[in-house]
């Protein structure tokens, strides 16, 4: 039995200092006793997992950097200038952006990773466009709108999933979004290639996607009809 010399309260055996005034508990008679059971469980925050993740991140980075150094070197030695290796460099950098940040970011944030992927894909494709066909700007006309749409669609689906909406609703939204995706792709490609807008294959795809989505919504609604009163009570 120990008392706080400052406050005068009796202290539980497990306490090493007074919770009220932080004065250390020193009881010469209690030193030999076993470690007492604490009144609440004591938790330790584990840092092992975090360190492991950092190590994996460093490992991948080192391997990628070796490729980044070796490829241009070989390319230069063999053909006296940089030809094919720039594609390798770009692709490896793009791959690194997709793989490493999600591993090492401490707080898992899906949206953040998607944004990093989006930006790296944009950079990758724009450089590819510049290296392969500098006169034809397919990046701005086709790739960027499609990437933007994909980003929006992924963010929308993710936020729906986070809101614990029924899986069937999320799947049907996915169907509608992919239908729209087909129409969009055909729109941009035909506009870029022929200068005119001509829908051939995408519209039937969209119609069937919407049909499937509606079917799914009806299926999930059927099970809900009886609960409308509960959901809408004022």
């Amino acid at each position: 039995m120990s008392y706080c010399v400052n406050c005068g309260v009796e202290l539980d055996k497990s306490l090493k200092k007074c919770p009220l005034c932080s004065t250390a508990v020193i009881n010469p008679n209690d030193i030999d006793e076993d470690i007492p059971v604490t009144t609440y469980p004591v938790e330790e925050i584990s840092k092992v997992v975090r360190q492991m993740k950092k190590l994996v991140g460093i490992f991948i980075t080192v391997i990628f950097s070796v490729i980044l150094i070796l490829c241009p070197l070989c390319n230069y030695i063999i053909s006296d200038r940089i030809t094919w290796s720039k594609y390798v460099i770009l692709s490896v950098m793009f791959l690194w952006c997709c793989v490493v940040p999600p591993i090492i970011i401490e707080k898992k944030n899906f949206i953040k990773s998607v944004f990093i992927d989006f930006i790296s894909a944009c950079v990758y494709l724009s450089f590819m466009n510049y290296f392969t066909t500098p006169n034809v700007n397919w990046f701005m006309n086709i790739s960027l709108p499609i990437l933007l749409y994909l980003l929006g669609a992924v963010v929308l689906l993710y936020s729906l999933a986070r809101k614990k909406i029924k899986v069937l609703y999320i799947v049907s939204t996915g169907f509608v979004l992919s239908g729209i995706f087909c129409v969009m792709t055909e729109y941009f490609i035909s506009k870029f290639r022929f200068g005119s807008i001509n829908f051939v294959w995408s519209v039937p795809v969209l119609v069937s996607c919407v049909g499937i989505a509606l079917l799914l919504v009806i299926i999930s609604k059927l099970s809900k009809l009886s609960t409308i009163k509960k959901f809408m009570h004022i």
């Binding site: 005068g8 309260v9 306490l15 919770p19 009220l20 005034c21």
Partner: peptide
Amino acid sequence: DKEIEKGFFTSLIKMGIPVKIESNLV
């Protein structure tokens, strides 16, 4: 900070009422 709790329990001690303290902050 534990000023409030300290003030509360020490006034009980001063009135002659014994208090035993437990805490989750070991």
